[in-house]
């Protein structure tokens, strides 16, 4: 029996960056996996969880959790959503009727590069393009999932990877934080763009649609000459 692999698009993938989802699917197929959509899945519940609204987070996450019940792996092109599902779902559903299901599904959730590199051992994917890229570490992917190397391994296969100074510093998105404190959040995005400029990076790569939306949105507004691209798109372009 072939393993059932689901690709979870994430709400930002559905609403803002659909190309992230199609590129992720292409990359997975290139690695020999045929990812299926996950009918009935909506959102991981993180916005409410981070805001402290546990019941509301559970209500939404339950839908996605149950939709993922029969899958052998759930691949997520977002470090932040993957961290929510992998690490916080068991907490979110503790003592709940779906606690056992959450405990079973959580370890089967993988961030895209984690799945490709650590589960499939699929690197390299794509061929070298000679293009220079710098990688931005997204907070939850780095400090919760502890995924430092997998995206870099993949990027080195297709591009000249430069290290972005203070690549681990938050871009200022932070979900609701970005609209609750727009001035501070924007100053943080400017920090990120300043390090990219100082490093001469023309392309900044991230594995999180939230960071991309924030850094790109600020770069676009200020006319900064930097492209902000999802890891999946960089890989897909090199196929």
């Amino acid at each position: 029996m072939t393993a059932m692999i689901g690709l979870f698009p994430t709400c930002l993938g559905d609403a803002v960056h659909p190309r992230v989802v199609t590129d992720s699917a292409r990359v997975l197929r290139a690695a020999g996996v045929d990812p299926a959509p996950i009918p009935g899945a909506t959102c991981c519940g993180q916005p409410a969880w981070n805001a402290g609204f546990t019941r509301e987070a559970r209500r939404v996450a339950r839908r996605t959790l149950r939709a993922a019940a029969g899958l052998d792996a759930v691949v997520v092109p977002s470090g932040s959503c993957a961290a929510m599902m992998r690490l916080h779902w068991p907490q979110l559903f503790a003592g709940d009727r779906d606690a056992a299901l959450a405990a079973r599904v959580a370890p089967r959730v993988f961030e895209l590069s984690q799945y490709l590199v650590e589960e499939l051992g699929a690197a390299p994917i794509g061929s070298p393009t000679g293009r220079a890229v710098a990688y931005h570490d997204s907070c939850h992917m780095l400090r919760e999932l502890r995924l430092h190397d997998p995206p870099r391994v993949l990027l080195r296969g297709v591009a000249e990877l430069e290290e972005l100074p203070r690549s681990d510093r938050c871009c200022g998105f932070g979900g609701a934080f970005a609209v609750r404190y727009p001035d501070v959040s924007t100053a943080m995005a400017d920090d990120k763009l300043a390090t990219a400029r100082a490093a001469g990076a023309e392309t900044v790569v991230s594995a999180d649609p939230g960071c991309i939306m924030h850094i790109e949105g600020r770069a676009s507004r200020t006319g900064a000459a930097v492209r902000v691209v999802h890891l999946a798109s960089v890989l897909a372009e090199a196929l």
Partner: peptide
């Protein structure tokens, strides 16, 4: 209101 708090300093996607 909420979207404006984003859009005052940031675009939604890159131009």
């Amino acid at each position: 209101p909420v979207i404006r708090r984003w859009a005052r300093t940031r675009d939604l996607v890159g131009k």
